[in-house]
Amino acid sequence: MFRIALFLLTNLAIIIVAGIVLSILGVGSTLDETGALNLTNLLIICFVFGMIGSVISLLLSKPIAKWSTKAQVITDPRSQAERWLVNEVRDMATRAGIDMPEVAIFPMQQANAYATGWNRNNALVAISSGMLERYSKDEIRAVMGHEIGHVANGDMITLTLIQGVLNTFVMFFARIIGHIVDRQILKNDSGYGIGYFVVTIVMQIVLGILAAMIVMWFSRKREFVADRAGAELGGKAGMISALKHLKAESQVPDQMPESMNAFGISSGKRSGIQALFMSHPPLDERIKALEAA
């Protein structure tokens, strides 16, 4: 119920904010008085809706992450392990040149960790209880260094901007194709007919799939960079050992919420065409890249 309410509120916020922005910009209809497509207005409208949706998602990323993973932020360490974890994150954050992020533990036996937040100085790094229990201190230090690397490199913000730009062009070209089909093929001269809406929806799905492949390609590239940050901040041997440990446990079903997969240090294995939609490179490739570094 909470997920549905959050989804509806997010979309309502997008519509309201987009409406205000478009009103301020004085952007009206996408059709001019002759029924021709006004490309300038269309591009502005698509840009506003595409970017605002991504930006609102980014601004809500921390509370959504805490809720979806049931993460508990460590405000007052209750054990030696929690105290050690907070101190290690503080040390690495200082060395990476960012403000101290919130540190959290989420209840999950599968080994995983993630970073999120709307800017590098207001971030959250979290580790699963299973990883904290089973992994060595060197491995945990490197994994948290990997997450600090994501924060310091601004990966969450960059990913949001890429998604926003792609959203813009998906909406833009889907509507242009819909307009062409409606006017040139279906010969509709006034307003838009059902053909426009059907074609636009279909093309938005097709182009959206292609856009998702681009976003996931970028995400995979950033994982290699974050692995190098983990090796620099937490130790190369610890980072390689952590990835090998993750590989050894890779048969365990992925318990991370789907919406958080791109932010975790590990995600489920896929093959064939599904590999194009992986947010993470195969662990073997990441290990080889670190060993060769």
Rank of each mutant, 00 (worst) to 15 (best):
M1F: 12
I4Y: 15
A5E: 11
A5N: 11
L6P: 05
L9F: 13
L12W: 15
V17C: 02
V17N: 01
I20N: 04
L22A: 03
L31I: 09
L31D: 00
G35V: 06
A36Q: 09
A36I: 03
N38M: 10
T40G: 12
N41I: 12
N41P: 01
L42N: 01
L42I: 13
L43I: 13
I44P: 00
I45A: 13
M51V: 13
V55T: 02
I56E: 01
S57I: 12
I64R: 11
A65R: 01
W67P: 01
T69F: 05
K70I: 10
K70W: 08
V73I: 12
I74S: 00
T75A: 07
R78T: 08
Q80M: 14
A81F: 11
E82G: 02
R83S: 06
R83E: 05
R83L: 03
R83T: 11
W84I: 10
D91A: 15
A93E: 06
A93T: 11
A96W: 03
A96L: 04
I98K: 07
D99K: 15
M100L: 13
M100A: 09
A104P: 00
M108T: 05
M108D: 15
Q110D: 15
A111E: 11
N112F: 01
W118D: 04
N119E: 04
R120N: 02
R120H: 02
A126L: 09
I127V: 14
S129D: 13
G130S: 06
L132N: 01
E133M: 09
E133W: 07
K137E: 13
K137Y: 14
D138L: 03
E139W: 02
E139I: 04
M144K: 01
I148L: 12
I148R: 12
A152H: 09
G154E: 08
M156P: 03
L161M: 10
Q163L: 14
L166D: 04
N167Q: 09
N167G: 06
T168W: 06
F169W: 08
F169S: 04
V170W: 07
F173N: 10
G178F: 08
V181N: 08
S190M: 07
Y192D: 01
G193A: 13
I194Q: 11
Y196G: 00
T200M: 10
I201Q: 12
V202A: 13
M203P: 01
Q204V: 05
L207S: 06
G208R: 01
I209Q: 05
A211F: 07
I214K: 02
V215G: 01
W217P: 00
R220M: 10
R222D: 14
E223W: 07
V225P: 00
V225G: 05
D227Y: 04
R228G: 04
E232L: 11
L233R: 05
G234A: 11
S241E: 07
S241L: 04
H245E: 06
K247D: 15
K247T: 06
E249T: 05
S250M: 08
P253R: 00
D254N: 10
M256D: 09
M256G: 06
P257E: 05
E258A: 04
E258I: 10
E258K: 06
N261K: 14
A262F: 10
F263I: 10
G264A: 14
K269D: 15
K269R: 14
S271V: 10
G272D: 03
I273K: 00
A275Q: 08
L276H: 02
F277E: 11
H280W: 08
H280N: 02
P281N: 15
K288S: 12
E291I: 00
